[in-house]
């Protein structure tokens, strides 16, 4: 870790004003790790925990407003989240460990960086960490890397579980920057690496995530967050799927689905979701959805298993949602 200066502003104005090489500090579970590994080297750290973003509140449209500083643990346990957005609670509980979720914030989760081994190790070439140095993950040990949305420059997986549920829920991200406030849909928040892999998302310098707004999600019991990983807890997803289905009389009216562990960002394919509209659940339907979701997947040296596994995980998740038996995150048996 290198020396840095530190401030803890109490107003957005003050927090957003700082230009230069700064990083916002929320729970610190990702940023501090990266600073210790010499991956992040901010000259100035702005602790945003004194900003007023600690609330979960009802929205007029029947949705919910999640403050960026509410912890992952508190979000997952909040009665309104449990009641209206069990999909989100489930995805949060599928990630990390209780200790980390107690520190991690919603804003930090959204902005967490990839777990690519080569990104984490300053001895290795990495376009995301040091633009223009190359991508050592290509041709390297890349079992955990992405197969969707990759580019020549970068194949890093976007690691969050929570954000996969947010993508399926079509959440909106609220931002506050030097030029005022704006909102953006979560599906448009994260960036594909393309030839600018150092840009994880559309945040502009000085811009802060203030909250996540959830629209109403009329899925009833027809949702699931299904995560396959290399051990039964405390591991990032190899493949994960968030699904919400609006069902009526056994028919799917419409559905929403996002993939985790597979893409360089939360992976959503609208024309795959469109297939679900006004359909009866069936193996062939779900297979088609999986096929469309995975269209264009390319593996590198070690991660072909993801492409083999993903269709089966997607189909299982769709069945869990259709039948209305969401995956439990405490009972590790997958039904």
């Amino acid at each position: 870790m290198r020396s840095f200066s530190y401030s803890r502003p109490t107003s957005f104005e003050e927090a957003c004003r700082n230009a230069g090489h700064t990083r916002f500090l929320a729970g610190g579970t990702n940023l501090i790790d990266l600073m210790k590994s010499d991956v992040e080297r901010p000259a100035h750290v702005i602790d945003i925990k004194s900003l007023p973003m600690h609330h979960i509140a009802d929205r007029p449209d029947g949705g919910l407003h999640l403050g960026a500083l509410v912890t992952n643990a508190d979000t997952a346990a909040h009665p309104l989240v449990v009641e209206r957005y069990p999909l989100l609670a489930s995805a949060i509980l599928a990630g990390a460990s209780p200790q980390i979720r107690n520190m991690a914030t919603n804003g930090g989760n959204l902005n967490q960086r990839t777990r690519c081994h080569y990104f984490y190790d300053p001895a290795m070439a990495c376009n995301k960490r040091s633009p223009g140095t190359g991508c050592a993950a290509r041709g390297g040990r890349n079992r955990i890397m992405a197969v969707l949305g990759t580019s020549d420059a970068c194949i890093a997986t976007f690691p969050s579980d929570m954000c996969i549920a947010l993508a399926a829920l079509n959440a909106t991200i609220n931002l506050h920057g030097p030029d005022g406030e704006r909102t953006v849909g979560v599906r448009d928040y994260h960036c594909l690496p393309g030839d600018t892999p150092w840009r994880d998302n559309i945040l502009q310098p000085g811009e802060i995530v203030t909250a996540i707004d959830l629209p109403p999600a009329p899925f009833g019991p027809h949702h699931t967050y299904l995560k396959v990983r290399d051990r039964l807890s405390f591991a990032f997803a190899i493949v994960s799927v968030a699904v919400g289905l609006c069902m009526k009389d056994g028919r799917i009216e419409r559905g929403s689905i996002a993939l985790g562990g597979m893409g360089t960002k939360p992976w959503c394919v609208p024309h795959a979701e469109a297939l679900l509209e006004d359909q009866l659940p069936s193996h062939s339907l779900f297979r088609d959805v999986a096929e469309r979701l995975l269209h264009g997947a390319v593996a590198d040296r070690d991660n072909t298993a993801k492409i083999r596994l993903a269709p089966r995980v997607i189909e299982r998740a769709l069945w869990q949602a259709a039948i209305g038996t969401p995956q439990s995150q405490t009972d590790k048996a997958i039904r």
Partner: peptide, 25 residues
């Protein structure tokens, strides 16, 4: 321990990616 032969380095050199069994296992 994942060896990257190109550099002779074990790449998953941390507890997030070198998996020992968790309680659930």
């Amino acid at each position: 321990s994942l060896m990257d032969e190109r550099v002779g380095r074990f790449m998953n050199h941390n507890f997030a990616e070198y998996h020992i069994p968790a309680h659930a296992d």
